[in-house]
């Protein structure tokens, strides 16, 4: 069930950095929704996410965040230091995601150092550190990258289980099948 006030609104947004990259794009994310954003490589999906974070520029149209909305983002290329003595549990705690019960798929490796996890394990941990955070809106940018089919299934389970934890979720992906499984609707942008 969705409330009438959107968490995030893109209203005819044309966005980019030095020059226009994407748009015009219009869509909204309401509380309780998991919305997919898809399009070909280089179509500007990540640029749209960056407008929410203030790191990309809106040239035309308007991007509105609900008043006081807090955001957590799982980047397509998250920061992964080659050597860092930090456990998965410490990362989850740092992200504020330790108030929720840990998903079963993460428990086996949550006490290992994050620099000693496989790519898929690290990605799952990052997604949970984002989804479990006490924020109003979560943006997942290509969450299935680095993941084998088993990890992808675990990711789908985590996303479905976290449906009630966060206000709204925007999932950016070029994986249509994955989006069909986890989102309530998908917005497509073209180059």
């Amino acid at each position: 069930m969705t409330s009438t006030l959107p968490l995030l609104v893109f209203d005819g947004v044309v966005a980019g950095y030095g020059k226009e990259v994407v748009g015009p794009v219009s869509f909204s994310v309401f509380p309780g929704e998991t919305v997919g954003l898809t399009g070909p490589n280089g179509s500007g999906k990540t640029t749209l996410a960056n407008t929410v974070l203030g790191t990309a520029r809106v040239f035309k149209g308007e991007m509105r965040r609900a008043e006081g909305l807090t955001v957590a983002v799982q980047r397509q290329h998250p920061v992964r230091l080659s050597e860092i003595p930090l456990t998965g549990r410490e990362l989850v705690r740092l992200a504020g995601a330790d108030q929720q019960p840990l998903p079963a798929s993460i428990r086996p490796f949550v006490d290992r150092r994050v620099d000693r996890l496989s790519g898929g394990q690290f990605q799952l941990l990052q997604v949970w550190a984002t989804l479990g955070a006490p924020v109003g809106l979560v943006i997942l940018d290509e969450p299935t990258s680095n993941m084998d089919p088993h990890s992808k299934e675990s990711l789908e389970e985590i996303l479905r289980a976290s449906h009630e934890l966060v206000g709204g979720v925007l999932v950016i992906s070029h994986d249509h099948e994955f989006l069909d499984h986890v989102t309530s609707r998908t917005v497509r942008i073209d180059q």
Binding site: V52, L53, G54, T55, T70, V71, A72, V73, R75, P78, V79, L81, I84, L86, L91, L94, A95, A129, A133, V135
Partner: peptide
């Protein structure tokens, strides 16, 4: 301590808010 770690490992959490 938590801010320095967050800034390095999950930088969007601070700047995005």
């Amino acid at each position: 301590s938590p801010r320095l770690l967050l800034d390095r490992l999950l930088p969007d959490r601070l700047t995005g808010n």
